[in-house]
């Protein structure tokens, strides 16, 4: 019986950037609609069972109430904390269950939590967060179909999935990871987490620097683009120097001064500048900076399904034939 995992982050798209920038508020109703379309897509490709994290606010329930397809949706046996830990625990459990694919609904932060819990299970990442680089902004139906093709073994993962890069931040004996960017921020507290004031950013380590991205990684994207598949990263120190115009938050295109930057080789360690601050991972203040810290870009991130490539590679005629 073909199965898939599903993780919906109810908290995505709700942070302070709705007050300090022009970020939109994504309602649970929209998330439920996206979720419903993903479930229909999965079922149409022959998936019969979905193991899902309980979102705690009824998003999944609202989607299931409208589901037309024959699909068993079962909640994962996880005691909810109402925090990121729920996502990490769900990803870990789904990998232990050897579920062939996980569909995620959230932003870069959600997928970072998923990547903390699993490494071998391919991800189909759908965007519902604020300024996302990692997940795709596609229709849920299409994402569900792509995940369904992976779940039913109709897609060659060597061709339709790639191992993502990640930033590894090493501080006082612990390693934290980011999927897109790690920033040294002159803020002494985690507070409301989001980073929107570029004046407070001291340095950036980027796994990706896409010219089309919104967020801190866009600063690198304006200087020296580094794509998802390139075997490199980027390091920037902000300060007096070359100026670029970058969209650092939704609706906020600002001038940013970069003192120096350079391309990083994969697995090259770089010492982070000493700072009475915190490290922000994928735009969220997370780790207090205390003493020496270093970072590197490595190709040890999650296995990511390219939704378009998966659909292009699979023949849907075969699906019909198998169903018949």
């Amino acid at each position: 019986m073909a199965a898939a995992g599903l993780i919906v982050n109810p908290a995505a798209g709700r942070d302070i950037r709705r007050l300090v920038a022009d970020a939109p508020l994504m309602s649970h109703r929209e998330k439920a609609s996206l979720c419903l379309r993903a479930l229909e897509g999965l079922a149409a490709m022959g998936v019969e069972r979905v193991h899902a994290l309980d979102d705690g606010v009824g998003i999944l329930g609202a989607a299931c109430a409208k589901l037309r397809a024959e699909l068993a949706v079962e909640l994962l046996p996880i005691e909810l904390e109402g925090s990121t830990d729920d996502t990490v625990a769900a990803a870990r459990l789904l990998e232990q269950m050897r579920v062939p694919v996980i569909v995620t609904l959230g932003g870069d932060g959600t997928n970072r939590a998923v990547a903390c819990g699993c490494s071998q299970t391919p991800l189909v990442a759908l965007s519902t967060g604020t300024n996302n680089v990692f997940p795709s902004l596609v229709d849920g139906t299409i994402a569900g179909m792509a995940a369904g093709l992976v779940a039913t073994g109709r897609v060659d993962l060597d061709r339709a999935a790639t191992r993502a890069k990640r930033v590894e931040v090493v501080t006082a004996g612990r390693i934290d990871l980011a999927l897109i960017d790690a920033a040294v921020v002159r803020d002494r507290f985690v507070g409301s987490r989001a980073v929107w004031d570029v004046q407070r950013v001291r340095a950036l380590v980027l796994a990706r620097a896409e010219p089309w991205a919104v967020g801190l990684s866009s600063i690198g994207g304006r200087l020296h683009p580094v794509g998802a598949h390139e075997p490199a990263g980027l390091y920037l120190e902000l300060g007096e120097g070359e100026t670029v115009l970058a969209p650092i938050a939704p609706g906020r295109v600002v001038e940013v001064s970069v003192a120096q930057w350079r391309v990083l080789e994969l697995d090259e360690d770089i010492e982070l500048p000493a700072c009475d601050g915190v490290v922000a991972l994928d735009g969220e203040r997370e780790v207090p900076l205390d003493g020496v810290a270093s970072a590197r870009v490595a190709r040890r991130g999650p296995l990511v399904v390219d939704i378009r490539a998966a659909l292009a590679a699979a023949s849907l005629k075969e699906v019909r034939a198998l169903d018949a």
Binding site: A11, R14, D15, I16, R18, L19, L25, F189, V190, G191, S192, R193
Partner: peptide, 12 residues
């Protein structure tokens, strides 16, 4: 604008 905040976290 509407935001959700952890009301147990004074700094947030």
């Amino acid at each position: 604008p509407g935001v959700t905040v952890d009301g147990f976290d004074l700094l947030a």
